[in-house]
Amino acid sequence: MTIQLGQTAPDFRQESTHGEIRFHEWLGSSWGLLFSHPKNFTPVCTTELGEVARLRPEWDRRDVKPIGLSVDPVEAHHKWEADIEETQKARPDFPMIADPAAKVSALYGMIHPESDPVLTVRSLFVIDPSKKIRLILTYPPSTGRNFHEVLRAIDSLQLTDTRSIATPANWSPGEPVVISPKLSDEEAKRQFPQGYRTLKPYLRLVDLETSIR
């Protein structure tokens, strides 16, 4: 199964370190971060789970619920959590899905046909409160995921969902944003009375600090 942006995230019921998860029900009205690992007790993923745990205040500030997944059973997840706490000084406080039959992995297209058929690839999905998939990232085994980039992308998604704007390359919160080309100059002036800069008719930049309502 191929998952694409804008599709509804597939629902599922699966065991986890926090008990049975009914995914859509568990998400509720929050954003979700679903990320997979090839297997337990792997070095790169150990550092990633520790980082997600350390970033708990940032997920909470954005109303994002993180949830991990591996093909190993729940018992192995709990043992891995102890290793993560020992080596990373942070214990995961979010659920880790046990997917030994690769049910969820197949549902989300996490197993690459050219890869080991029993291991998930390192995929990451950001899901919005309407259960739509908004971001998909897949990393190679040798490269740890940059969760600060994930936070930046979520900031962009949450900001642009409420305004007729987009965020430019390398954008960080507080920096100028791009006004949608769909807005006429008249409408842009109405929505952004503080003024904006026109570099080209299709490229207009605005500082939002004084205009967020």
Rank of each mutant, 00 (worst) to 15 (best):
Q4F: 11
G6E: 07
Q7I: 09
T8L: 14
P10E: 06
E15G: 05
I21K: 03
R22Q: 15
R22Y: 13
H24D: 13
G28P: 05
F35C: 10
P38D: 10
K39S: 14
F41L: 11
F41C: 06
T42A: 09
E51K: 14
V52Y: 10
A53N: 10
A53T: 08
R56F: 08
P57W: 14
R61T: 11
K65G: 09
I67F: 03
I67T: 02
L69W: 00
L69C: 04
V74P: 05
H77N: 11
H78S: 13
A82R: 15
D83H: 12
I84E: 12
E86N: 04
T87A: 13
A90M: 08
R91C: 11
M96W: 04
A98K: 01
D99V: 01
A102H: 09
K103C: 00
K103P: 00
V104R: 01
V118P: 00
V121I: 01
R122C: 13
R122F: 13
V126D: 06
I127L: 04
I127C: 03
D128Q: 12
D128C: 12
I133Y: 07
L135Q: 12
L137E: 13
Y139L: 13
T143Y: 02
H148P: 00
V150S: 03
I154N: 08
L157N: 06
T160F: 07
T167F: 04
T167N: 01
P173N: 02
E175N: 11
V178S: 02
S180W: 02
K182D: 07
K182T: 09
S184A: 07
S184V: 09
E186C: 01
E186S: 12
E187T: 14
E187P: 00
A188G: 04
F192E: 05
Q194S: 15
T198E: 15
L199I: 15
R204I: 06
L205E: 14
V206F: 03
S211H: 05
